[in-house]
Nucleic acid binder design. Structure first.
Length: 431
RNA sequence: GUGGAUGUAGCUCAAUGGUAGAGCACUGGACUGUGGCUCCAGUGGUUGCGGGUUCGAGCCCCGUCAUCCACCCCA
């Protein structure tokens, strides 16, 4: 094989592509039902945007960016996440900023240079929503509720919602210093990664999974104990709201996320069948990000769901995927009738019709095969009926492929099409 | 970025270092004017790629690419 997809990327082929389309459609429907509207941003942005928002000390910025210079020497980066671009678009658009709050979503590929694995790709898809300009705990609740609703809409109900608070400008720096002080006395007991984290981002030490670090973590100061009154109240209110909405959650005091811009509420949703990974998505509040990117103080919250993982974890509950079964397969009864069969198929679809009705799904042979072969193809494609062309003296012969018997002949194309539409409606064959 | 496993037909898998096969799928045909069952036949592979050892390599050795698993991290 001379060419192959680049490492960590893949083609999404039928029938998987049909499952993807189904999940996308479900997600869009739910997002729309909550009043969220789509924003499509470029797939690359100025490198600075990500460095400034995601954070210099994060893995994403330090080793996972796809960065390149364009012909004028501008440093550009394939987006590793969707929040920063969306906030950038929000700040550029006076129209969007008039929404108060703004409910927006995005859906598309993201890029991170990582070692591929099941559920982890270099190009992966995210569905994300952002609620900009709302500070109330109700906003946090709506976000998480929306997240869970999307999962339910695609048949995923057994998930675990992990919730934590990281504090705000008032209490996080204090807590951060306490953590640094705590570990500072025991640097020799930490793993190499954690010693580096101690320099750059001490909070990440709390999330370390190396066994040798665990004993030390036990005694570390807890974020939730260090929250200021405002953050403590906010966190409590979010939990109360979620319980009122009937959403089960689990407080995870050591949940820290991979992006630096989060404040207060952070959450992650875990599910099964994801290989070594376990998160289908996550998100959090970012009350300072908009201002840090040059906008007004705009408390906001958002999440992103990994499409790839959503598809992996949902498995069978979805429609198996596959080409939609044709309502009709037009069979050319004689070798010379192939083109006529195409014309009949076209007429039955109603291409030149007023367009008021949902078109019939009609296929016809394009290889001048034998009647027997065409019937086999029609049968395998799941066609509900076969129409034979050309018509004989009595009209168009029709065979019901499901019942296994011939229907009544139809005198001409117009009555044939009407008859087929009527059959579809009354027998609820339409999907 | 670190460590380990794997790579043969569209799919699932065979082949003591000695001519690359099976089942399913696919294509055509026979039999019901007109499918499903059955039967017959056929297409399909430089064994991921590139070197090396050997009279001879799918098999042994080296490299490389890719996937999978664990770590890391997250989506």
């Amino acid at each position: 094989m001379k060419f192959q997809v680049p490492r960590g990327t893949r083609d999404i082929l039928p029938p998987d592509s049909e499952r993807w389309a189904f999940i996308e459609a479900q997600a869009r429907t739910i997002l729309g039902s909550y009043g969220y509207r789509e924003v499509r941003t470029p797939i690359f942005e100025s490198t600075d945007l990500f460095v400034r928002s995601v954070g210099v000390s994060t893995d994403i910025v330090r080793k996972e960016l796809y960065t390149f210079d364009d012909r004028k020497g501008r440093s550009l980066t394939l987006r590793p996440e969707g929040t920063a671009p969306l906030v950038r678009a929000y700040l550029e658009s006076a129209g969007l900023r008039q929404e108060n709050p703004a409910r927006l979503y995005y859906l598309g590929p993201m890029f991170r240079y990582e070692r591929p694995q099941a559920g982890r790709y270099r190009q992966f898809w995210q569905i994300g929503a952002e609620l900009l300009g709302a500070q109330d705990p109700a906003a946090d609740a709506e976000m998480i509720d929306l997240f869970v609703s999307i999962l339910r809409a695609v048949g995923l109900s057994s998930v675990k919602v992990l919730l934590n608070s990281l504090g705000d400008d008032a209490c996080r720096p204090v807590y951060r210093d306490r953590v640094r002080d705590y570990f500072g006395g025991h640097l020799d007991q930490l793993c190499g990664d954690c010693r580096e984290r101690w320099e750059t981002n001490p909070l990440r030490i709390l999330d370390c999974k190396v066994p040798s670090c665990q004993p030390l973590l036990e005694g570390a100061p807890r974020v939730l104990d260090a929250l200021c009154d405002a953050c403590r109240d906010h966190f409590a209110a979010v939990q109360t709201a979620l319980r009122a909405l009937g959403i089960e959650l689990e407080v995870a005091p050591r949940l820290v996320r991979g992006l630096d811009y989060y404040t207060r509420t952070v959450f992650e949703v875990h599910a099964a069948n994801l290989g070594a990974q376990n998160a289908v998505g996550g998100g959090g509040r970012y009350d300072q990000l908009v201002r840090e990117l040059g906008g007004p103080q705009t408390p906001s919250i958002g999440f992103s769901i990994g499409m790839d993982r959503l598809v992996m974890t949902t498995g069978e509950p979805l429609p198996a995927g596959g080409p939609p079964a044709p309502d009709v397969y037009v069979v050319a009864r004689e070798p010379g009738a192939t083109i006529e069969a195409l014309a009949v198929a076209r007429a039955l679809r109603g291409v030149d019709d007023s367009g008021a009705r949902v078109p019939l799904r009609v296929m016809a042979d394009v290889q001048a095969r034998s009647v027997s072969s065409q019937m086999k193809v029609a049968s395998r494609a799941g066609a509900k009926r076969v129409v034979f062309v050309p018509p004989d003296g009595d009209g168009y012969a029709v065979r019901d492929m499901i019942e296994g018997k011939d229907d009544m002949k139809q005198p001409d194309l117009d009555s044939l099409r009407s008859w087929l539409h009527a059959r579809r409606a009354t027998t609820a064959e339409a999907r």
